[in-house]
Design a protein around this nucleic acid. Structure first.
Lengths: 229, 229
DNA sequence: CGGATGACCAGATTTCAAATCCGGTCATCG
DNA sequence: CGATGACCGGATTTGAAATCTGGTCATCCG
């Protein structure tokens, strides 16, 4: 059982570069191995199938994003406010082609990975976040179907460029501002939240993220012998 | 030059039924003719190409929707308020498979029609509506990039079911309510608008819709001899 | 006559079998 | 004992022949 996550990372780097260029379908395991400077068989010492290799790749991106958000949260607890948090999540997603492909269900890039369990996990995190901000009173209490509401009103920002060629494009920064405005007014109470309350809420979700970070790490680098959750 | 829009409508009915069942690509002009009880050549007395026939079909649906919205607007000018108007537009779109396919860029159903000029027209109407509600003070004045904002935060409601299998589905009625809530709080002023102001705004856009109605009618039923805009 | 029709044409699409490719294994090598 | 790539069978691609279909127009009614 090879522990060296360093080699696993090299393989994932190779897979990532090829995937962004060619898409899941057209990348062969042999391509990945060659690009990583190892033999094909070696890839299978880390993952049982091509599919699991690429799921790990996406999960690594998700993990990077979660880590980044957790850090931001600890540095500035006000970041827990929906309009700030969802703005950062949007920016982080837009910056990473793999995550962008994931939320837009980009078949070109993801191929059959569209239905991968990673998506369900992301949704799971989102739901925990919603529960938490609700509990801490960071969203107004007259919003019907909060999870649906936030998901729906947010989703369009991710898919605009691919679905609405008519509307003039907006740079990510501006789009993020618009998203923040929408969330701020549509879902948050009019008054600014109590700062001390922000701290506890921020810590709570940052802790959750740290847990996820660990479990993601396990999944990504876990040797093929270990079964999957 | 055949004037009988009655026959044109029968052809469009046939095309519509087949398109919803099979999608643009798999419907043949001969199928349409047979279903309409006429000869294939007769179809070409009304439209120059298969593509224009199906564009007319979609345009007819768009026209029905516009007519319905204009009526509603005249009956109750308060319908001009963004949250009311966009709610109705959403409901009307969801009810019509063709329009739904149009806003979601459903390739399965639309085939190459995805890039048809109809989409640009729809966007054009939307922009005129935005300009009008802005002029009449029906949206708050601190919203950055209003057109983009409304488009983006609205779009997700249309694409939720196809892009987010994770989130529990919501019936159209409830989803429309959520949409209305979002628009009301994100983009409208806190205070309710002046009723007399609503009337003039409502009339103005209803007039615009009547104009569009006429020009759509021209396009849909115009004989192939007449050139296209 | 003048509107309606369907046989007809060329280009596009589908079919199907042969050729190639690729995910996954495992005997062998260092 | 970890790493490798030749090898296997099922999946995918290829390409040429067969079929289909958008669009035309000579002919046929009313």
């Amino acid at each position: 059982m090879p522990q060296p996550t360093e080699r696993a990372d090299r393989i994932l780097d190779a897979a990532g570069e090829l995937m962004i260029r060619l898409g899941y379908r057209k990348v062969t395991v042999e391509d990945v191995a060659r690009q990583a400077g190892i033999g094909k068989g070696t890839v299978y010492l880390h993952w049982r199938t091509k599919e699991q290799l690429f799921e790990s790749l996406i999960l690594r991106s998700a993990r990077e994003m979660i880590t980044e958000l957790a850090e931001k949260l600890r540095r500035d607890p006000a970041e827990i406010q929906p309009h700030r948090f969802l703005r950062s999540a949007f920016r982080a997603t837009q910056r990473n082609p793999l995550l962008r492909a994931l939320v837009t269900s980009d078949v070109e890039l993801l191929g059959s990975l569209t239905e991968s369990p990673v998506r369900a996990r992301e949704q799971d995190i989102a739901n925990r976040y919603y529960a938490l901000i609700t509990k801490h009173g960071l969203v107004r209490d007259d919003v019907p179907h909060l999870a649906y509401a936030i998901n729906a009103s947010t989703l369009g920002f991710y898919t605009m460029s691919s679905l609405k060629p008519g509307v003039p494009e907006l740079d990510d920064e501006s789009a993020a501002d618009v998203l923040a405005h929408t969330v701020r007014h549509a879902f948050e109470p009019d008054d600014d939240p109590d700062p001390t309350l922000l701290v506890s809420a921020a810590n709570e979700i940052a802790d959750l993220f740290d847990d996820l970070d660990t479990s993601y790490r396990e999944w990504i680098y876990g040797a093929p012998g270990n079964e999957r959750g």
